[in-house]
Design a protein around this nucleic acid. Sequence first.
RNA 1: GGCGGCAUAGCCAAGUGGUAAGGCAGCGGUCUGCAAAACCGCUAUUCACCAGUUCGAAUCUGGUUGCCGCCUCCA
Length: 479
Amino acid sequence: MTLKVFNTLGRKKEAFEPLEPGKVRMYVCGPTVYDSCHIGHARSVVVFDVIARYLRVKGYDVTYVRNFTDVDDKIIDKANQLAIEPQDVAERYIKEFYEDMDALNVERADIEPKATAHIHQIIRFIEHLMDEGFAYQTNSDVYYSVEKFNEYGKLSGRRLEEMEAGARVEVDIKKQNPFDFVLWKSSKPGEPAWKSPWGMGRPGWHIECSAMSCEYLGEMFDIHGGGKDLTFPHHENEIAQSEAIFKKPFVKYWIHNGFVNINQEKMSKSLGNFLMIKDAIKAYHPEAVRLFLLSKHYRSPIDFTEKAMDEASAGLDKIYSLFERTVEKVGLATVGDTEPGDCWEKFCEAMDDDFNSARGVGILFDTVRKVNRTLDQNNGELSSELQTAILTIQTDILRIGQTLGILLESPKTYFDKKRSKVLQQKSIDPSVIENLIQERNAARREKNWEKADEIRLRLQDLNISVEDRPEGTIWKITN
RNA sequence: GGCGGCAUAGCCAAGUGGUAAGGCAGCGGUCUGCAAAACCGCUAUUCACCAGUUCGAAUCUGGUUGCCGCCUCCA
């Protein structure tokens, strides 16, 4: 099976062939740490987390770099607002980033460099650009001259001449071309500043990624990712910087994820509709958030709504419920005990097609239904063949879960946590529930159906549904 | 103004030349004291619209309409 990847550079799917066989070097633009992460950050980070996991599953030796932009105007603004140091702002939000991403089961990147820890490399990079004639100094600022780079615009499909016609960019008189961008910015008193050949200042935004990707991945590497909005100007500028110096293709595959809307609206400051990760995971299980994010293709926009999240939660319940059943029948295997089966192979086919996790999720539910059917049809003892078959499928589902970063809890833990969360929210003592269930079962034994049903209705009002199973009554939280 | 994307059932969503995955909701059934859960069946002759290419198109081409994104250091 060959993996195909949609490359923004060229805008088509291409067979994935890393520069060095068996190795993948990938760089993803991380956040500018001036505020809490919102659901849009979550999508980008989760999508690339899954891409990295899948590449590893495919057997590639992956080196994954994701940076933190920890020096920036917005960080400085925030520091002024809070009357603290910019680096404290950055530290605070890096800490929050980890809290959010850990909750979402995002694996750490192999290297997570910060811009401020690479000032030396950045300055050297800029010097290099000056030497090669791609940059110029005005007062104490250094700019990149886009006109010097012939291929400027090749990633985003723009041409300098065409852009100028309708550009709304305010013309900065210090720039030779309105699209020239700052490489080194002189500092005002009190701002973070480093000594440089051009005076005290700080790096522009784009240069850190060129400098740090080179530092950790070399002059050329395989995958560079980020949100769609970064295509222009950020990634276009990175190409201009890196290719100007190294005179060869900077990145082989550019991957960009689509945006998250909230109730069909773009998240924006003016609408005040930013959904922060920490709030989303208060309301929903983090795995439900992941399942939601992965149930649509990564390049399409996705709409965050309460309904969509309820459906994702219900879907997750459905899978964990299946595990409850299979664990009882065949026990819980761990990935590695069993050879991958058909289900896993179909999932891989989907993922091989430009990481089509949406199709993969479809296959997951398809499989869940098949196992439930098998269990329904074989109510009594399972033959050893069936047990083995179910174990294989169960393990496939777990394998898929590991790739998508879901299904990492035991069904018991999952449902227990869900229960206690809701009970806590509603300040209900679980023993009250248990007592009601006992009372209802007593009524049922006496065939007092009226009383039993009345108790069931009372529980329903508390968002609790009861299931009378052959082996006893259990209760669950409904969404 | 420039560049790009999208339009598939009530809703969400796969599907890039071979006769419409999956989820949610709905209806009917099996199971059940009744339910719930699970399963089975039904639910798009049709993929925004028009024209074209082809033996054959949701998929390719041209056009129309509608929505959205980027061109603002927003993932």
